[in-house]
Amino acid sequence: MMLPHNWPRAMANAETVMAAAEILASPEQVLAALVTTDVERWWGSPETYRMTGWTADLRVGGAWTVTVRTPDGRRLPAGGTFLEIEMPRRIVQTRRYDWNHPTLGRHETTVAYLLESTAAGTRLTICHGGFAGFADAAAEHAEGWARVLGWLQGYFGEGRRAA
């Protein structure tokens, strides 16, 4: 079944990235895919990067970490802290690369995942803020979130389900 306007959409201004997509899974399944080791199963592709070594202490104040593995073998650590958790509607977390990202360096940003139940599954909206002074990074992350949401749609569209 094709949904109207179900493709991932993303845009950025100089400070904030907004991205959204319809996901053919329940909010609980989508959140599990975003904040559990399921991240390693779908987030990335052989030609871009893969997420590995995901850990998360899923509570307010809890930390999360992941290693981004590039096709050329580099291992780039990232992580942050969970600021708000309202299961299964909303998670807010900080995010920082622990390496010198080309457009963002080690500047900390904030990602909010907002989930709304729909007839077909979940509308996932991502609000990624904290890019003031980093307009190039905001534009790059808008492209990245559209790609990530496409991967997430594919993960659920192929009949896989989060535990």
Rank of each mutant, 00 (worst) to 15 (best):
A142L: 01
S117K: 12
Q93N: 15
V39I: 11
S117D: 06
R96N: 01
L31H: 02
Y113D: 15
E140L: 13
R123L: 14
R106T: 15
H141G: 10
H107G: 09
G105T: 09
V111R: 14
E40M: 13
P46S: 05
A135N: 02
R106W: 09
T110Q: 15
Y113C: 15
P46G: 04
R50Q: 08
N100G: 07
G61C: 08
L115M: 08
E116M: 12
P46H: 00
E108G: 14
A137I: 04
T109A: 15
F82G: 11
R74Y: 03
E108V: 15
I126D: 13
V111S: 14
W43Y: 11
A135S: 07
G44L: 04
M87Y: 11
T81K: 15
G105P: 07
Q93A: 15
T55K: 02
R96M: 09
G73K: 09
G44N: 01
L114S: 12
L104H: 01
H128R: 00
V68E: 02
E116P: 09
M87Q: 14
A146V: 04
L76M: 06
A120M: 14
I126C: 13
D57C: 10
V39R: 00
G130E: 03
L114N: 13
G53Y: 01
T122C: 00
D72K: 10
I85L: 09
S45P: 03
V60Y: 00
P71A: 04
Q93D: 13
P71F: 11
Q29I: 01
A135F: 01
E47V: 09
L124M: 06
A56Q: 05
H101E: 06
W43K: 10
T55A: 01
R96L: 04
D98A: 00
G133E: 03
E47I: 07
D98N: 02
